[in-house]
Design a protein around this nucleic acid. Structure first.
Lengths: 64, 64
DNA sequence: ACAAAATGTCATTTATAAATGACATTTTGT
DNA sequence: ACAAAATGTCATTTATAAATGACATTTTGT
């Protein structure tokens, strides 16, 4: 399922997929895949995304 | 760095590495590697471990 | 003190996250 | 309305998570 939370957090922080990708050291496509869902990123990447957006794992990646 | 939190949560729930592995559908070695640190598990696996131990991502995998 | 269970660690193979390049479509600012 | 930036998606390659088997060491219950 899609990860809307990252998209929203990105909008709040006013960062594009490309900029977020640069901040965490991956490519734009990887960020795009994660937001699109059906993807299983590594813990390290999840953590990097959280820190870049000033969120925690539970904020962005915890479901239910 | 080592992940002591999982080890502690396991002790609380009285589950061995082997049992936890079975609960989340991986092998014992994978659990062992995660607890030992220097490992970068997938988000899906992290989430499964949390649910098996009644914890959240922040409880077990968030640092600082 | 002893046996059984649990843990640590190695080496090899397999599945998949992430990189890379490329192009089409959508969104945004002026 | 238009151009530029951002996003969606494909196909191929590379790096690494996770599987598997095997054995040594440590911990636990009696």
């Amino acid at each position: 399922m899609k990860n809307k939370k990252i998209k929203i957090a990105r909008a709040e922080a006013d960062v594009s997929q490309e900029k977020l990708a640069a901040m965490v050291g991956v490519t734009r496509q990887t960020i795009n895949l994660i937001e699109g869902g059906n993807y299983n990123p590594s813990l390290k990447l999840c953590t990097a995304i959280c820190k870049a957006l000033n969120k925690t794992l539970d904020d962005l990646f915890w479901e239910e």
